[in-house]
Design a protein around this nucleic acid. Sequence first.
DNA 1: CCCCAGGCGACTC
DNA 2: GAGTCGCATGGG
Length: 268
Amino acid sequence: MKFEIPKTPYFDIGQTLNCGQVFRFVENDGKYTLFALGHRAEIEDKKDRYSIDCDDREFFEKYFDFDTNYELIQSELDDKGLLSSAMQFGRGIHILRQDAVETVFSFLISQNNHIPRIKGIIERLCEGLGKDMGGYHAFPTVEALAGAGEEYFASIGAGYRAAYLDRTARALADVKSVDVLRSLDTPLLRTELMSLHGVGRKVADCILLFGFNRFDVFPVDTWIKKVFEEEYPKVAADKLSVLLVEKYGKYAGFAQQWLFYYKREKKV
DNA sequence: CCCCAGGCGACTC
DNA sequence: GAGTCGCATGGG
């Protein structure tokens, strides 16, 4: 089915997909093909609007977070400093409402890794363990991941993360439903996530932000460290994350995405 | 060749 | 609690 959305300054599909929050998409001459769980969407830029061809309109309207007022968030975060420049540069970024389990495994793979390589590993993971949807494969279920074995994850190039993937998959398979975790507040949920093997503060914060849409978080990675190395010299990543949540408050997660994208794309 | 990547766990003190 | 170190792999 197809639907269209009018273009506004506050949603840009290229910025939204390329800001590092999601890995399962490909671009072909301005046209994006995106995969999420067991769904697929093709997004075409039609100058004054986006045309979206997908298997589930309701799913993708929620996924793209069209209900959030990004203009309001940006006006509340406007500090006239680097963040203002970053927001102007990445004004069209939306934070996608991704599946929690998909973000757990995607960001386990992301640690100490390059984005092109992360994409490849996730692609092979879906290819090998995900349900055949006819033309593509869904993201694997926890059960499929738990049954794969560490050697399988190593065989698709996960490197030393293979053990993390295996142990975390088997731990999550024992949890009745990940959705039970949604009732926890952000600090408690972070603690739960960090109890998983291979999930530290940074990966937990990415899962909180992208998989649970908690915005009172600030994932600190190598790029964010560079952004703040002068303002907060020699502050450890975990501590810096705490300081930045205090600084940016309930919209910290949005601020983080804009600053990350600005630093990485514009290289300032 | 070396350096690095959306870090983490294990180990030391 | 804070500081080091090794880690698999492949792109630049």
